[in-house]
């Protein structure tokens, strides 16, 4: 019932919108100037309605995602709801970094778009894809595959032939000493997903 009415109204609404925008073009220029700061303010406000960080948890029953925002002592866990209109809910995976755009405030925050927060490749490195990795493994060339996940994960199941060097170990003073002495050897690092 409601849908039908909505459908009937839609063409009308579109027409109205078209008329409105058409009219604006004929308006004196100053109207456009007036609108500009308003648009800017709107953009600024929108920028605020974004959480970036690691997903702490997700409940499909309560349709809630919690995400850790900020660093160190300032880190806070924020809650956002999601609904059937939320795009990219599949990117809200516990332990992965995500960018959540939302509307509403406080406990009425509802996610509109969820995107994975992709890792930036550090200087001097490039990405390798699965087929390339498989080709490298089959090539007989020398390479060292490094599993950078926490040690427990490495033990549970690692890509065959990997060595495990987790981030804390690598960050230690002599962490790099665990890598081959020959600095020309192909190194491939990986962890638990594209975040």
């Amino acid at each position: 019932m409601n849908h039908k009415i909505l459908k009937r109204l839609l063409p009308l609404a579109c027409g109205a919108a078209f008329l409105a925008s058409g009219c604006a073009q004929h308006e004196p220029v100053q109207a456009g100037n007036k609108a500009a700061p308003a648009v800017q303010a709107e953009a600024k406000k929108k920028q605020k309605n974004v959480f970036k960080g690691k997903i702490v948890g997700k409940s499909n029953k309560a349709k809630t995602i919690s995400i850790k925002v900020g660093k160190g002592a300032k880190a806070k866990t924020m809650m956002v709801k999601f609904d059937d209109n939320t795009k990219g809910v599949k990117h809200a995976v516990k332990g992965h970094a995500a960018i959540i755009k939302f509307k509403g405030e406080g406990k009425n925050r509802i996610a509109t778009v969820i995107k994975p927060k992709l890792a930036k490749l550090p200087k001097g490195t490039s990405e390798m894809k699965t087929p390339e990795l498989k080709a490298l493994m089959a090539s007989g060339k020398k390479y060292v595959l490094v599993d950078a996940r926490p040690t427990a994960r490495f033990h549970e199941g690692t890509i065959p032939g990997s060595i495990g060097i987790d981030v804390p170990t690598m960050k230690k003073k002599n962490g790099a000493a665990l890598l081959p002495k020959n600095k020309d050897i192909q190194l491939v690092f990986y962890c638990g997903g594209p975040t």
Binding site: A119, L121, T125, A148
Partner: peptide, 26 residues
């Protein structure tokens, strides 16, 4: 994160460093 380690390896002088971003799930 793999990228952190890869960055450190490059800094340590390794010349051929790649990151398999898709990782274990991929």
């Amino acid at each position: 994160m793999s990228t952190t380690n890869a960055g450190l390896a490059f800094k340590a002088g390794h010349k051929n460093v790649k990151v398999y971003l898709d990782g274990v799930p991929g």
